[in-house]
Each structure stands twice: as C-alpha cells, then as structure tokens.
C-alpha cells in the first residue's frame, strides 16, 4: 500500500488528551519532570519547536521533557530528519532507533503529537507547534526514545510465528494457489513496529495477559495460511478471556498502523473462527 500522507484521517484538534491528571496512575519512577531548553540555532528563519521525552538510565533521575529548536531550512521534511538534525547539531546524546528511513524496518516507531507512527514517514509539517515526541506509549524505556520491546516480542514468540506442518515434506515444495496466497495480503506486511499494540488501551491495562493487536494480527497471518496445519493448537492458544477476548474492538490499532494494515479485522476473523469451530 502506498502511503500518500502521514495522516490517514484528520486528527482531533479539540481534545489533545483525555481529561485525566498528568500523573494519573503513574508510579514515582515514571513521573516526567521539567527538562532543559536548548538554544535556538542562530540566524535560522524557519524554526519549529520540538518537545522531546528524555531519560538517561545512567543519571538515575526521572524522565524529563527537553525543548529543542529545529532549523527547518537546514533539515529534511520528516520527523526522523529533525531527530537526526538535533543529534548532529544540538545534543549528540539524543537516543533513538532508526535504520531504513523509508517505513519498512519499523525501528523508528514513536509517539508524535499523541499518536504512534514511524518517525521516517511522518511529515514535520503534519505536527502541531510545538511538536511533542514521546517514545511508544506504555513501554519500559531503556533510554530517551528507545523502548524495551522484550515483552511484546515474547508475546509474539508465543504464537509460534512459523509454518506448522504435520504431513511429511513433499518432494519439492508446499503449493499454494494464487487465491490462497491472496488471503495473506494485509497481514504478511506487518513490520512489527508495535505502534498498534502500544496504542491499544486494553494492552495498557492488561498487557501482561492480552496479546495485543500486533501479535494477534500475526496469529491470523498463520491461521489463514493455506499451507499451515497447526490451526487447532493455534486457536487453542488464543482462546482465552485475556489473550484474545481482552480486545474490545476499540480500533486504535487500525487507526494508528503506519502500514495501513488492519489488526482489528484480523482479531474479528479470529473470534469468528473460534465461534465457527464450536457452532
């Protein structure tokens, strides 16, 4: 799918955050404190203010919000360009993951203006002034914008994301018709950036047990694969009040997927399959 804009539907302007206190349910170590303001570049004519979440594990202090001034005439059009510009020209300790800079690796997923997306495919001009950059929501933070994805990858590992076969290997290969191959479209493209899982309120409250949209989308990618012979165990593994049914079809996942995929639909397919095998 070609991404024409970094905004799939216009974002809410009237309510930027839920009306809850800033430190609502936030444990002491996660409270965000005031950071420093870095000097604006001299002689710059077009400047955008970026407020960025910082956390330095070596200092042992709480996370903070630093303010940067980016010279837009000296910087590429994407948010990732701005982050690289800051790292090169202002503060070399600013830490974030990035690799492909074209939306296929999923490394630079972060929360920009309150929604998750890839920094490399979101235009700076799409962000409010000041632009607010947080790491992916609801993750343990290793440093600055780098989240610890150990748990969500452990959940992904749990669904055994590889082909399960029970019949002996054929002489050449396991065949699949063009129509059967088409069933994988919209599911196999997932890049595991975890924008969706991080944006899912149900995963915020029950992430230790609920598998989350990214993993459930991947689970459907294997369930719907005509060559896979492990659907019985796969559905057994999913059928659980928390693992699957904690999904309440909020659909923040589909709303935020930077690849235009549909985890919400994949989960509906799974619920339907589980119903189908018993009715």
């Amino acid at each position: 799918m070609i991404i024409h804009s970094s905004d799939q539907v216009s974002r809410a302007r009237f309510l930027k955050r839920f009306p809850v206190p800033k430190n609502f349910g936030v444990p002491a170590e996660s409270r965000i404190v005031q950071g420093r303001t870095w000097p604006a570049p001299e002689g710059a004519r077009r400047v955008k203010v970026f407020k960025i979440y910082r956390y330095d594990p070596e200092r042992g202090t709480n996370p903070r919000i630093d303010t940067f001034h980016v010279d837009l005439d000296d910087c590429g059009p994407m948010v990732l360009d701005a982050l690289i510009w800051i790292k090169n020209k202002v503060d070399s300790t600013l830490t974030f993951r990035r690799s492909c800079r074209e939306g296929v690796c999923g490394s630079c997923a972060m929360n920009m203006d309150g929604t998750n997306w890839l920094a490399c495919t979101r235009f700076i001009s799409d962000l409010d002034a000041p632009a607010v950059i947080y790491p992916l929501a609801n993750m343990r933070i290793i440093k600055d914008l780098v989240p610890d994805l150990t748990h969500v990858f452990a959940q992904y590992e749990m669904i055994e994301p590889w082909l399960h076969v029970k019949t002996p290997d054929p002489e050449k290969e396991r065949l699949q018709s063009a129509e059967e191959r088409k069933q994988l479209d919209g599911y196999y493209e997932c890049i595991l950036c975890f924008c969706c899982t991080s944006g899912c309120p149900s995963h915020w409250w029950n992430g230790n047990r609920f598998l989350g949209p990214a993993t459930l989308l991947q689970a459907w990618r294997w369930l719907t694969d005509s060559r896979d012979e492990g659907s019985e165990e796969r559905l057994d593994r999913l059928e659980d009040p928390f693992r699957l049914y904690r999904c309440h079809t909020i659909l923040n996942c589909t709303r935020t997927c930077p690849k235009g995929l549909n985890p919400g639909k994949a989960i509906a397919e799974e619920k339907k399959a589980i119903l189908e095998r018993r009715s």
Partner: peptide
C-alpha cells in the same frame, strides 16, 4: 533503577475510536 514506563492515557491523543469505545 527501575526503568520508567512511557505515558499512555496521560499523553495518547483521544480519537473517535477510543472516545466512542
């Protein structure tokens, strides 16, 4: 030191999907 958890409902933007839910 325990790693901090990044904000969720405190910073995530309300959208039609989550508001109607």
């Amino acid at each position: 030191h325990i790693r901090p958890r990044s904000p969720n409902i405190q910073s995530y933007r309300p959208q039609l999907t989550s508001v109607l839910s």
